Simulated assay, not measured.
Amino acid sequence: MFALSLALVVGVVTGLRAMTGAACAAWAAYLGLLPVAGTWLGWLASPWTAGILTILALGEFVTDQLPSTPSRTVPVQFGTRVLVGALAGAAFGTYGGAMALGALAGALGAVAGTLGGAAIRGRLARSFGRDRPAALIEDGAAVALAILAVLVLR
């Protein structure tokens, strides 16, 4: 149950920032906190994977601020978040020996993070009168949840 809760949390992170959830799973695998060796997710434990996904996550923080960035709820963006959430959730599911259930929890968390994050960010942006502070708060929440998910594995 603990692993599925973490898979759900990393799914929410993925709904907020897709690459942050992926980087979170990669770092947890690279640090040896997730038993992905010998599974189809073994590639997540590579330092190259963790590094590349971290660079992509940092890039996503920048591109999210651009006015030309499409909404996370358009089909391609939404679908990507659900797929990445399922992948990250599967990785966290290995912690409890429930990779398939972890994938499901990660996908459900990504749906919740995508829709809930968009709604909360919209409300925050309206209260601030602009989007940037709301986006930065969302960035911080995604990073904090990702770090928490990794730290509780230790």
Rank of each mutant, 00 (worst) to 15 (best):
Met1Phe: 07
Met1Leu: 08
Met1Ser: 15
Phe2Gly: 05
Ala3Gly: 05
Ala3Asn: 03
Ala3Tyr: 02
Ser5Val: 10
Leu6Pro: 01
Leu6Gly: 01
Ala7Lys: 00
Ala7Cys: 00
Leu8Lys: 02
Val9Ser: 00
Val9Tyr: 00
Val12Thr: 00
Val13Ile: 05
Gly15Arg: 00
Leu16Gly: 00
Arg17Glu: 00
Ala18Trp: 06
Met19Pro: 03
Thr20Pro: 05
Thr20Phe: 06
Gly21Cys: 02
Ala23Gln: 04
Cys24Gly: 08
Ala26Phe: 05
Trp27Lys: 03
Ala28Asp: 04
Ala29His: 10
Ala29Arg: 08
Ala29Gly: 11
Tyr30Ser: 11
Tyr30Gln: 14
Leu33Met: 09
Thr39Asp: 15
Leu41Tyr: 11
Leu41Phe: 13
Trp43Phe: 15
Ala45Met: 13
Ala45Leu: 13
Ser46Ile: 02
Ser46Asp: 09
Pro47Trp: 13
Pro47Gly: 09
Pro47Gln: 07
Ala50Val: 03
Ile52Gln: 02
Ile55Asp: 05
Leu56Trp: 08
Ala57Val: 05
Ala57Phe: 07
Glu60Thr: 12
Phe61Gly: 10
Thr63Gln: 12
Leu66Val: 13
Pro67Lys: 12
Pro67Phe: 06
Pro67His: 10
Thr69Lys: 15
Thr69Ile: 08
Ser71Ile: 10
Val74Asp: 12
Pro75Phe: 09
Pro75Thr: 08
Phe78Gly: 01
Phe78Asp: 06
Arg81Gln: 11
Leu83Cys: 12
Val84Glu: 01
Ala86Asn: 08
Leu87His: 05
Ala88Thr: 13
Ala90Ile: 08
Ala91Gly: 06
Phe92Ile: 13
Thr94Pro: 02
Gly96Leu: 04
Gly96Gln: 03
Ala98Arg: 03
Leu101His: 01
Ala103Leu: 07
Ala103Pro: 01
Ala105Tyr: 01
Ala105Ser: 11
Ala105Asp: 04
Ala107Leu: 10
Leu108Gly: 09
Leu108Cys: 13
Val111Phe: 12
Gly113Val: 13
Gly113Pro: 14
Leu115His: 10
Gly117Ile: 10
Ala119Met: 14
Ile120Tyr: 07
Gly122Leu: 06
Gly122Asn: 14
Arg123Glu: 14
Arg123Phe: 10
Arg123Asp: 09
Arg126Pro: 08
Arg126Lys: 15
Ser127Val: 10
Phe128Ser: 15
Phe128Ala: 15
Gly129Cys: 12
Arg130Gly: 08
Ala134Val: 15
Ala135Glu: 11
Ala135Asp: 10
Leu136Thr: 13
Leu136Pro: 11
Leu136Tyr: 15
Ile137Trp: 07
Glu138Ile: 14
Glu138His: 15
Ala141Asn: 08
Ala142Asp: 06
Ala142Ile: 14
Ala144Glu: 01
Ala144Gln: 04
Leu145Arg: 06
Ala146Thr: 04
Ile147Tyr: 03
Ala149Val: 05
Leu151Asn: 06
Val152Cys: 11
Arg154Val: 11
